[in-house]
Design a protein around this nucleic acid. Structure first.
Lengths: 191, 191
DNA sequence: CTCATATCGTTTGACATCAAACGACTACCC
DNA sequence: GGGTAGTCGTTTGATGTCAAACGATATGAG
């Protein structure tokens, strides 16, 4: 870490100064802001400690993890669990398959669908990787202690559940009137 | 939300089954796993509610936010605060500059450096965008209540601080012996 | 002054990422 | 049994992402 990086405390003080006048929900802002800071910091650490020696990207690992936990699954379900779009999963699973970690097989009853599962080699990798990964999870969470970890997990779970249950409706309400132009990027209709 | 998505509770039960045999730090795993689930869910919600009508990406917004809070800053510092690499920032600031939201100016004493700041237009956008953004932060954090928000923020801050203080050393220890091949992707040395 | 070394932001190449468009396929209706 | 409406995974195009290489500039030593 080379430069004089601003600490998280300094950042929060600067926010206070900047927002001196405005009336805002400071608690929610602190919580949500720190979720992202923590997620980025933890992801960076895990990528550069556990994953890099195996040349695995974060998302690649998440996909392997999903298949390890849930076993063989259809692609749409894997994308959902991994939190990525189905288009992204196409690329990821292509990469993982080329490395021999994942097997793609046809659905027996519907030729549109594809089933993903771990290869024996992928299974073996996860058995080695997961304990190391968990070791680093414990390292980053060390200052918290078991009880605080569980309370943290519980609070975060409440946020995820809220969005699972009410997020889509909320977005509909917010954007109802507004005419959403189609995304600027993405495939173009043929002329 | 089309398909029968697995809930976060179902996921945690599946993890329990899969890891029945192994000895693991379950509390840390639950905490860290939920940090990422929550971060992804919240980011998705904010992108698709507040940011999309303005055609802003998440990272673009974060960069604007950093400049808004801190004022004019050098690029390396902005990249650090935004949690992205300096190479990525080059692209982002190019995009934001082309939209007239950000101004790039030369450092008065060092012609290698570049200073970034918000344009008046960018300033105006943030004054409009930030309250809306904060409103959605409050929406996602609604089930928690102010005290729980602050406790959540505090726990996350402890994790970020731990990595700020001990992360690099930890990675050095873990990877010391291992010979890290240079990243597969990235620019190649010319022949 | 000169030359080596360090550091800045940019470029590069490989891949990730999203949503819309698409082709292949299934399912339903009459 | 012939259309057609819906759903699957893939392709596409724009942008994001990283770390190493790079060119331009600054700094320091002799």
């Amino acid at each position: 870490m080379p430069g004089p990086r601003r600490s998280i405390t300094e950042t929060e003080q600067a926010i206070q100064r900047r927002l001196g006048g405005l009336t805002l929900q400071r608690e929610a802002m602190a919580a949500v802001g720190n979720i992202h800071r923590a997620a980025a910091a933890v992801r960076q650490h895990l990528e550069n400690s556990v994953l890099r020696p195996h040349e695995l990207t974060w998302t690649g690992f998440v996909v392997l993890w999903v298949l390890w936990i849930w076993g063989e699954a259809e692609t749409w379900s894997v994308a959902e669990e991994a939190g990525i779009s189905k288009g992204t999963l196409t690329g990821i699973s292509r990469t993982l398959e080329s490395r021999g970690l994942v097997v793609r097989s046809a659905h027996p009853e519907d030729r549109r669908r594809v089933l993903l599962s771990l290869s024996p080699q992928g299974e073996k990798l996860m058995e080695e990787l997961f304990p190391a990964f968990n070791e680093e999870e414990a390292f980053v969470a060390a200052p918290l202690g078991p009880e605080e970890c569980l309370r943290l997990a519980e609070s975060l779970r409440a946020i995820v559940s809220r969005l699972e249950e009410h997020g889509e409706q909320r977005r509909r309400e917010l954007l109802d009137g507004e005419n959403l132009a189609p995304r600027r990027s993405g495939r173009r209709p043929r002329p």
